[in-house]
Design a protein around this nucleic acid. Structure first.
Length: 476
DNA sequence: ATGTAC
């Protein structure tokens, strides 16, 4: 802790010491540094810096907090030839991510029916631990196609439009997926869960744009003040969890076999050139594709519910996908003329303007990224700037960052009418499957997301494009 | 995050 150096108003550096191969860097202000378990998180940033082939820095975004091995909010790039891949650098919820869909509706058009919309969404989209049954369980060739084709499978089966695919990171397809390296148990757990929200901090929200800061980008994506949007935050459910769990075991063994010294067993990894790494990446790709199908199916269900509740056609909603991002993934990319495997765990890709991997329609603007806040305050649409390519391997933050533990929140919220608080104090109609999950996720549990996105803007990594306020929410 | 430990 004592060796932390504040090198810019928004940036701390941890100098190289002991077995660290590179220094650490944490994007944060002093206020954001005073988070729960900050010392443990800083140690996790240090630990990651020990791994073979790490390039430049072990990074943490301003919403960083303690995670399995790597900190959540961590970004680390490993040389494609000499580096490693680590399941702990991706996380249990492989391709957890978020998407935002804009509509032609304004707040006045839905306000009278809002309670009914929330109720109908709550019944159409299963949520909570172990939830399933949103669509008939995909079997056989469909199950394999889901994990090899990603979002395209959903569109080809009536869930969404081809236009959606243009507004998903990498088109909603992670290449190199091999279903044969994924356990039968992952398929058995995951397939009944396609189109389900899950639990924890996952949600489906109805939101209204309440401020626009970059009109050029907002206009391009059809967002102006008063525009009704919905956003979906979910991941790869039991499928990704099982993949991670299965491969942590083989990676523990691989670390030993290849003689990799680990400051923490949870950083287990394998050289990118090894068969173990290739198998993990092929399985991780399956889970990434599963998560995109999951969010894509829920998007289609939401359009259906909105149209039915408002008694209008789906087309008339103008419900176009603005963007879908992953925030738990490892990807091969080129940075500084070098091929690296970028691990983003609770961090979002945010390529700067002109990046060749961005679709032409918005390449000149930079990559859009969506940052969920909490149930009561605001979420933010961002766009990548040049600084992200220079400093953070094309990455930015992913959320507000927790300020109080789940157990502390349950204690703090004891005996209070949470749904009434959210509706009367925050103006949000919430429906959830469990009272505890709402207590754990109350706005008070989180830091203000605006502080987090401000740090990334100060650093020249991302610009804030628009702010959205929640008016309806369903949760597990 | 997660059939919150097979």
């Amino acid at each position: 802790m004592s060796d932390l150096k504040r090198i810019k108003p928004w940036l701390y550096e941890i100098p190289k010491s002991g077995g660290m191969r590179v220094p650490g860097r944490i994007y944060a202000t002093p206020a954001l540094m005073e988070s729960q378990k900050a010392d443990e998180c800083i140690q996790q940033v240090r630990n990651v810096a020990h791994l073979p082939g790490i390039v430049d820095y072990s990074l943490a975004m301003p919403d960083f907090h303690w995670g399995y091995g790597f900190p959540i909010g961590g970004v680390a790039a490993f040389d494609a030839d000499e580096g490693v891949v680590s399941p702990g650098g991706v996380g249990y919820d492989i391709n957890c991510g978020i998407r935002i869909v804009r509509t032609d509706l304004d707040r006045a058009a839905i306000q009278p029916r809002l309670r009914e919309i929330v109720k109908n969404l709550f019944h159409a989209i299963p949520a909570g631990v172990g939830s399933d049954g949103a669509i008939p369980t995909p079997k056989g060739e469909d199950a394999r196609a889901i994990v090899t084709q990603g979002a395209r499978w959903a569109v080809e089966h009536g869930y969404g439009t081809p236009d959606d695919l243009l507004h998903i990171e990498d088109g909603g397809l992670y290449p190199g997926a091999d279903p044969d390296v994924v356990s039968a148990r992952a398929f058995a757990r995951g397939m009944p869960q396609v189109g389900t929200l899950g639990s924890g901090n996952h949600f489906l929200e109805i939101q209204v744009v309440d401020a626009v800061y970059r009109k050029d980008v907002a206009d391009h994506f059809g967002l102006k003040e008063g525009t009704v949007c919905f956003s979906i935050h979910s991941g790869s459910r039991g499928f990704g969890y099982q993949v991670c769990d299965d491969f942590l075991k083989s990676m523990m063994q691989a670390s030993k076999n290849y003689g990799i010294e680990l400051p923490d067993r949870q950083l287990c990894c394998a050289p990118l050139s090894s068969p173990e790494a290739k198998r993990y990446l092929a399985a991780m790709a399956c889970a990434a594709n599963f998560a995109w199908v999951n969010r894509q199916v829920m998007t289609a269900l939401t359009r259906r519910v909105l149209a039915q509740t408002l008694a209008v056609s789906e087309e008339s909603l103008g419900a176009r996908l603005v963007y879908d991002v992953c925030h738990n993934i490892a990807k091969f990319e080129e940075h500084g003329g070098r091929k690296v495997c970028v691990h983003r765990k609770g961090a979002t890709r945010a390529f700067g303007p002109g990046h060749p991997l961005l679709p032409e329609a918005y390449r000149s603007l930079g990559q859009p990224t969506f940052i969920p806040g909490d149930m009561g305050r605001a979420s933010f649409l961002l766009v990548g700037k040049e600084g992200s390519m220079r400093e953070t391997f094309g990455s930015t933050c992913h959320g507000a960052g927790r300020a109080h533990s789940r157990t502390a929140m349950k204690r703090m919220m004891q005996g209070r009418n949470l749904f009434k608080m959210l509706e009367e104090e925050r103006g949000v109609i919430v429906m959830a499957h469990g009272r505890d999950s709402v207590a754990e996720e109350m706005p008070e549990a989180y830091k203000d997301a605006s502080l987090v996105v401000d740090v990334m803007e100060q650093a020249g990594v991302t610009d804030t494009v628009a702010r959205l306020r929640p008016i309806g929410c369903i949760k597990g």
